[in-house]
Amino acid sequence: MSNYHTPVMLHECIEGLNIQPSGTYVDVTFGGGGHSREILKNLGPDGQLLAFDQDADAQQNIPDDDRFTFIDQNFRYLKNFCRLHGAVPVDGILADLGVSSYQFDQAERGFSIRFDAALDMRMNQASELTAKQVVNTYDEASLHRIFGIYGEIQNAKSLAKTIVTARLNAPLNTISDLKNAISNLIPRGKENKYLAQVFQALRIEVNQELEALKDFLEQSADVLASGGRLVVMSYHSLEDRLVKNFIAKGKFSGEVEKDFFGNDQKPFDAVSRGAITASEEEIKNNNRARSAKLRIAVKK
């Protein structure tokens, strides 16, 4: 499925991994397989690649290659499954966070504001929690928190109250139901941006994206060999902040801890100063690259 998803900053990601031909690598967000296929091109006959993806649709893209192992799981289980496959330690880990173009384009998945469909937004279609359940069953305080923190929406409190009031008349089952219920709160001229923030908040909650990212980052330090590379690409500030803090401090908030001798207690050193962003040319060809931030670190 070549139209599944165009990988963002492909060259920069592969360069960041610093691939050794006989090494073991992990692509924790397989998706359309674009990054995985490029990693395989750089591996020799003894190299090994493991790839994670919880979306059943991604399995249509699995390459026919003896060096490749597909793991049908969320990347928050990185350590367990790398151990299960006898692949610890690994030489590099790549994560391309967010939703693939393919998922956005599948109307029935409910990720996109462009279509009308059931409020779903599950990346793993076997999981139970959907966006419909969030908007219809969460209390006002919980909705306020989700929209305020995950969506960074300014009128999050009013938004939560409006949804709770609207669902008293009839459940909000579809994207149209939700849009109609909150239409009076959407700023004129900024409709798409506002709705994108609402959808982002719901998607993060449904998929527990930030919790999964934290689990993954902490485990990456245990799974990587000394000198191994961690390459992470994020698409919004909440994700990027977690990645940046973990690389810089070995934790997600507060100051870096020091040992008895005053040495920093953190597993990684940043390879790139600040985040790497896509070129103007790439952004022109692939709009999704506009918000991408790539961070590369090496395990101490």
Rank of each mutant, 00 (worst) to 15 (best):
M1R: 13
P7R: 03
I14S: 06
E15N: 08
L17F: 01
N18F: 01
S22P: 06
G23W: 06
Y25S: 03
D27W: 12
F30M: 04
G32P: 05
I39Q: 06
L43F: 05
L43I: 03
D46L: 09
G47H: 10
F52N: 08
D57G: 01
D57A: 11
F81K: 14
Y102R: 08
D105Q: 10
Q106T: 09
E108H: 07
L119T: 03
D120A: 03
M121H: 03
R122N: 08
Q125E: 05
K132F: 12
K132D: 00
Q133H: 07
V134L: 04
L143Y: 01
Y150P: 11
E152D: 07
A160D: 11
K161D: 04
T165W: 09
L168F: 03
L168N: 13
A170V: 03
A170G: 02
P171M: 00
I175D: 00
N184S: 15
G189V: 07
E191S: 08
N192A: 09
A196L: 08
Q197R: 15
V198Q: 09
E205R: 11
E205A: 04
E209Q: 06
L213R: 13
E218P: 00
A221F: 07
A225W: 04
R229T: 08
M233A: 14
S237G: 05
R241F: 11
V243A: 02
N245C: 02
K251T: 10
G254H: 12
D259W: 12
F261K: 11
D264M: 05
D264N: 10
P267M: 00
S279R: 07
E282S: 10
R288E: 02
R290L: 03
R295A: 01
K300S: 12
K300H: 15
